[in-house]
């Protein structure tokens, strides 16, 4: 007689797994990766691969040191590495990018218990730490399409730096110049982090994630909608504000991180609106030109409170009477 397996119901399981979700996110970022390589050249691809590999290594090594089960195969470290890379300028020294990965994976994620336990988005914190530590490197924006080493300074360039013997011309972010055309902003022909400039590629990826049911449209719509509304009220160029900086990347790919954002739709709505308000305030009044990553981090921190405030009401549930103290 063979042994029968006895287990509690249900005895069937849906096909969705953490690994598949992460794979979907990686696939959704493919257009942005391709766009970044076209716009900023081979170094963008190297930066992406480096960050993904470094993140995976940090994840693996930390798990070994902490004597925990290996989790590289869930692909979450690869997603973090990719997102961090997309949030870096193409000219950043590689060692600094690796420090960013270390902060993201080891400090923010693994020291808090690994996937699912971190309170803040690892890629966001990685980016912010780099931003505060290496402000010049993190705010030096290469002029698009000058990776073939132009002899003449292209229009809009305000300086140049040497990378591996090549001269790369640099200029300010469109959030500062406010002179880029909508078309350039939409296609990514502006300075910025490698993954944030091409709105088209990001929108393709974002819509893919929504269609696949990986992310809820509530957060990006609330986030972008709030920024649009506040800029409208402030009399700014709404479309320009939406297309420039890291708004679309942040709204679709970072503010929708499961772990660090609210679980219910109402919570996601509040989260998105909060991000939008903070982004607008920083862009409008702050000394930083960009506020997307700070806004997401700040909202990550209040997420437990949003969650506690937006619990679902079970069907037909009776209110629990407050006990007489």
């Amino acid at each position: 007689m063979n042994n029968l397996t006895v287990s509690p119901s249900p005895h069937v399981k849906g096909s969705m797994s953490t690994q598949r979700i992460m794979l979907c996110v990686l696939v959704s970022l493919l257009p942005a990766v391709i766009a970044s390589c076209i716009i900023f050249g081979l170094r963008a691809l190297l930066l992406i691969l480096l960050c993904m590999a470094a993140s995976a290594c940090f994840e693996g090594v930390t798990r070994i040191i902490m004597k925990r089960e290996q989790t590289i195969t869930d692909l979450s470290a690869a997603v973090t590495g990719l997102l961090l890379a997309l949030n870096l300028p193409v000219t950043i020294p590689f060692w600094q990018a690796i420090i960013g990965c270390f902060i993201a994976i080891v400090i923010v994620k693994q020291l808090f218990g690994g996937l699912g336990q971190n309170f803040a988005n690892p890629a966001i914190v990685g980016r912010i730490v780099l931003m505060l530590s290496f402000t010049t490197n993190m705010t030096t924006w290469a002029i698009p399409f000058n990776w073939n080493v132009n002899e003449n300074m292209p229009a809009g360039a305000t300086g140049s730096i040497e990378i591996a013997g090549n001269t790369v011309f640099t200029g300010p972010t469109p959030l500062v110049t406010e002179t880029a055309s909508y078309k350039d902003l939409f296609l990514g022909n502006v300075g910025g982090c490698i993954g944030e400039t091409c709105a088209l590629a990001l929108l393709i990826g974002g819509i893919y994630l929504i269609i696949r049911g990986i992310i809820s449209p509530v957060t990006p719509v609330a986030f972008i909608g709030t920024v649009a509304l506040l800029n409208l009220i402030a009399g700014n160029d709404v479309l320009y504000q939406l297309l420039s900086g890291g708004l679309i990347l942040g709204a679709f790919f970072m503010a929708t991180d499961y772990v660090t954002t609210p679980v219910t739709s109402l919570g996601k709505l509040i989260f998105g609106i909060g991000c939008g308000v903070i982004t607008f305030l920083i862009r409008q009044f702050g000394s930083y030109p960009e506020g997307v990553s700070f806004s997401i981090l700040l909202m990550n921190i209040v997420t437990p409170y949003i969650d506690a405030f937006t619990m679902t009401k079970p069907l037909g549930a009776k209110k629990i009477k407050k006990e007489a103290e």
């Binding site: 953490t18 979700i21 989790t71 869930d74 690994g114 499961y258 679980v263 679902t312 079970p314 069907l315």
Partner: peptide
Amino acid sequence: TNCIRCGRCIKACPLKLMPT
């Protein structure tokens, strides 16, 4: 594996409970 707080269980629950 670890809960990733995706909220799928909450969406799926016909009685609107919060399994996570």
